[in-house]
Amino acid sequence: MIIDTRNLKKTYITYERGTTFGATIKSLFVRKPIEIEALKGIYLSIEKGEIIGLIGPNGAGKSTTLKILSGILHPTSGEADVMGFTPWKQRKKYVANIGAVFGQKSQLIWDIPPMDSFQMNKAIYNIPEEAFTTRLNALVEMLDLSRLIHKPTRQLSLGERMKCEFVMAMLHDPPIVFLDEPTIGLDVIAKEVIRKFIKEMNAKGTTFILTTHDLDDIELLANRVVVINHGSIVFDDSLTNLMGKLGHKKIVKVILSQAYAGTTLKSGLEYEKNSELELEFTLDTSQMSLKAFMDHIAGELEIKDISIESEDIETVIKELYLI
């Protein structure tokens, strides 16, 4: 096991600031603390070589989890063991062994070319010349960056910059890389390049933990999905199992050859009339099997055509978010 956390909790304390002038003055003297329980006990075990997709609605606690695991934040309570380190206790030694990309924050120095930022990281991590060159060349080739690393960072597009952020995060060859929304704001092609890169690095042994709001990232990358909501893990398994567990709804569209008068169908069957001759059922297969349903409607309706679709991932995940 490369990461193991037990009962990680994080409570932020903020102070209420008044909106009116009087209240603002008052808040200068008496401040009312507000506690925000961002994490309510996270248990997470991750094996070497996994790609974990951490998803959840806004404010669920994803970034907080990553910040604790990358040694930036101290948890309020709980334990974590990452490669034998407690991130927040042995920060300096620990962070030499991890990489991180925060989609919303740049590690590159704005006014100078990425190459200079890479040189800076070489000095920060004490990377030997030879290893640096080999590694840089490999990364630059994988991400097709050779033309870009000598241009000032501020002239790069978001996608180009993000690729450079990955180089920054991986020059020192960390066994674990944390990614907080690494595909945010990228176009389809840039996303594809980044995903391919993550897959290739993973095949070479790097463990990735990534948060995202793009479910394609999950579908295409993650061997395991961890859904976090209101500071707790509400699901932790493969995507297939997530679909199997929650995706028991089918959308059945029936085209009729004769209008349905509407009394003989079993009560409890949900449907909408798209038109006189088209009915759309939402079937909950945990309540009624597909076979029973088909048998039933075949007896009641004059069916001309029929289509059956599973609920898509988005709908399934929405159900989890709304808990």
Binding site: S70, A100, F102, Q104, K105, S106, Q107, I124, Y125
Partner: peptide, 12 residues
């Protein structure tokens, strides 16, 4: 800017 966090992930 929130980038102070990024100094904390450097081994220095």
């Amino acid at each position: 800017e929130g980038t102070f966090d990024l100094l904390l992930i450097k081994p220095r």
